[in-house]
Amino acid sequence: MSFVKKIIKPVEVLVVASKTGRVTIKYPFEEPWISPEFRGKIEIDPTKCIGCGACVNACPPNALEMIESEDKKTLRYFVGRCIFCWRCIDVCPVGAIKGTRNFELATNDPLDLYDYIVHNRVKCRECGKVTGETTRMLKYVLEKAFVTENYNNKCPDCRKKIFINAISMRRTGPVGEKT
């Protein structure tokens, strides 16, 4: 490289700059540069969700939480904690969670950051105690695995009781009755 060329070399950046032109865009008036694979906020379809809690177990930052009360089970999604990993979408057994490309999540109302899906809990038909599962979960399980009609809608304690009773009836008569 000759001496003059060496001196002039740094100025070549002007050529690069003029070739490139402007690279910034007038966001938000123009579309941001987002790839089709981008992972954004998730959306949970309340009509499909069965409240099984698989997503809650998989969620690394606890953005999805199951809040249990007396007769309700509430799935809460908090965008503020979400890391947009979409693990919940991988593990959802019914495909209720859908990923979107939405990342513009700023809001002036903190309540906008929460999504709630409320499920009813199953009541035991025998003793009236609420069991762990939701009504939809029960329906889902019944579709997959056939449980005798006699046993569904009952809490584990009652199921045990009925089962033992049934066996003892067959052999020695009802439990607890001494002859």
């Binding site: 790839s35 089709p36 694979e37 981008f38 992972r39 890391i83 947009f84 990993c85 979409w86 693990r87």
Partner: peptide, 15 residues
Amino acid sequence: MYLAELLTGSRKTYG
């Protein structure tokens, strides 16, 4: 960064 997003779904913290 765009390439990373295309391959993984996120610019950073590919997950």
